Computed example of a mutant assay.
Amino acid sequence: MKTVPSSYYVHLQQLQEVDFVILELTLYLDTHPNDIESIKQYNHYVKERHKLKEQFEKNYGPLTNFGYSYTKQPWEWKSSPWPWQV
């Protein structure tokens, strides 16, 4: 199994926390589609997730494949820890 620095887990947890908030807001907005403050929160966390994901991938490689993440040269997907390896 590949080893990763402890900061990898800190940054991964940050992404997971933001993903949780986005999911909860999505479920809430499904039943409260006119709640402007929640829509603002949702958009804020989507923007934050984009930044966190970009920084994570810059430091550790792509999180996903199939066109959802950019890659550097050479192809990074095979050299990054895969989700089931961490």
Score class of each variant (00 low, 15 high):
residue 35 D to G: 10
residue 55 Q to N: 15
residue 36 I to H: 14
residue 67 G to Y: 11
residue 50 H to V: 07
residue 35 D to P: 07
residue 57 E to T: 05
residue 8 Y to S: 04
residue 35 D to E: 07
residue 72 K to R: 15
residue 77 W to L: 10
residue 54 E to D: 14
residue 10 V to M: 03
residue 48 E to C: 06
residue 50 H to A: 09
residue 44 H to L: 12
residue 57 E to I: 00
residue 39 I to V: 06
residue 30 D to I: 00
residue 8 Y to Q: 09
residue 15 L to Q: 07
residue 28 Y to P: 02
residue 75 W to N: 14
residue 18 V to M: 03
residue 55 Q to R: 10
residue 80 S to D: 06
residue 44 H to S: 09
residue 60 Y to W: 07
residue 57 E to D: 00
residue 35 D to A: 08
residue 77 W to K: 05
residue 34 N to H: 09
residue 45 Y to E: 02
residue 63 L to N: 01
residue 58 K to G: 13
residue 59 N to F: 10
residue 31 T to E: 14
residue 50 H to D: 09
residue 70 Y to R: 15
residue 46 V to R: 08
residue 13 Q to K: 15
residue 72 K to D: 04
residue 12 L to N: 00
residue 25 L to P: 04
residue 60 Y to G: 11
residue 60 Y to I: 02
residue 22 I to T: 08
residue 13 Q to F: 07
residue 55 Q to W: 03
residue 19 D to L: 04
residue 74 P to E: 04
residue 60 Y to S: 05
residue 42 Y to C: 01
residue 60 Y to M: 14
residue 15 L to H: 01
residue 68 Y to L: 13
residue 5 P to C: 08
residue 50 H to F: 11
residue 40 K to S: 07
residue 72 K to W: 05
residue 16 Q to D: 05
residue 39 I to F: 07
residue 21 V to G: 02
residue 7 S to L: 13
residue 2 K to F: 02
residue 68 Y to G: 07
residue 58 K to M: 10
residue 37 E to G: 03
residue 70 Y to D: 14
residue 11 H to C: 10
residue 26 T to D: 06
residue 71 T to A: 06
residue 39 I to M: 08
residue 44 H to E: 14
residue 3 T to A: 08
residue 14 Q to I: 04
